[in-house]
Deep mutational scan, measured.
Amino acid sequence: MKVIFLKDVKGKGKKGEIKNVADGYANNFLFKQGLAIEATPANLKALE
């Protein structure tokens, strides 16, 4: 799953980066902790 990092995550990505991560990692950790959002077309456009 492609995500946009909202904060730096050690060993995974930095704020503003768009990366592929495992679905479970994104859903169970990144999204719940507010560290990333899904890289949907709307979210990508808002990032610009």
Rank of each mutant, 00 (worst) to 15 (best):
M1T: 13
E48K: 11
A46K: 12
P41Y: 10
K7S: 11
E38C: 06
N43I: 10
L30C: 03
L44N: 04
V21A: 02
E38K: 11
E48M: 13
L30A: 02
G13I: 05
G24S: 14
L47A: 09
E48C: 09
V21I: 08
L47C: 07
A26W: 08
V3G: 00
E17W: 05
Y25P: 06
L35R: 00
A36E: 01
K45W: 09
P41L: 12
M1C: 08
L47H: 11
G34T: 04
I4P: 01
N28C: 09
E17Q: 11
K45Q: 11
D8V: 02
P41I: 10
G13K: 05
G11M: 05
A36V: 07
A39R: 00
F5S: 00
F5I: 02
A42E: 14
L35Y: 13
V9K: 02
A39V: 06
L6H: 00
L35S: 03
G24N: 14
F29T: 08
L6Y: 01
N20K: 13
V21T: 03
A36H: 01
V9H: 04
V9Y: 04
I18A: 04
K2N: 12
K12A: 15
L47D: 06
A46T: 11
K2G: 05
L47V: 09
K14G: 07
N27E: 14
I37V: 12
P41H: 11
N20Q: 13
G11A: 05
E48W: 09
G11H: 08
L35C: 03
K32E: 11
D23Y: 14
Q33P: 01
F29G: 04
N27F: 14
K15S: 07
E48F: 13
G13N: 02
G11T: 05
K10E: 14
N28W: 09
L35P: 00
G16S: 03
T40I: 06
V3P: 00
F5Q: 00
A39E: 02
D8G: 06
K12C: 14
N28G: 13
I4Y: 08
I18F: 03
Q33H: 15
A22R: 13
A42Y: 07
D23L: 15
V21D: 02
E17K: 02
F29K: 06
A22C: 11
K19W: 07
V3N: 00
L6D: 01
A26T: 04
K45G: 09
K10G: 08
G13S: 04
K12T: 10
M1G: 03
V21Q: 01
F5A: 00
V9N: 01
K2P: 10
N27S: 13
K7N: 10
E17A: 06
L30I: 02
L6K: 03
F29N: 07
I4A: 01
K45R: 08
V21W: 02
E17N: 04
L35A: 06
G16N: 07
K10A: 14
A26M: 05
I4R: 01
G11E: 05
K19S: 08
K32I: 14
K14C: 12
L44T: 06
F29Q: 07
V3K: 00
K2F: 14
V21F: 07
K2M: 15
V3Q: 01
L47G: 05
G24I: 13
V3A: 01
A22K: 14
N28Y: 10
A22G: 12
L44I: 14
N28P: 03
F31A: 03
D23W: 15
N27V: 15
M1R: 09
K10I: 14
A26L: 07
G11V: 01
N20V: 15
Y25W: 09
G16K: 01
K14I: 12
K45A: 10
Q33M: 15
A42W: 06
K2A: 12
T40Y: 04
T40R: 01
G34N: 09
G11P: 03
D8Y: 08
E38M: 10
I37N: 02
E17R: 01
K15G: 03
V9A: 03
F29W: 11
K12P: 01
G13V: 03
L6F: 03
Q33E: 13
E38G: 04
V9L: 06
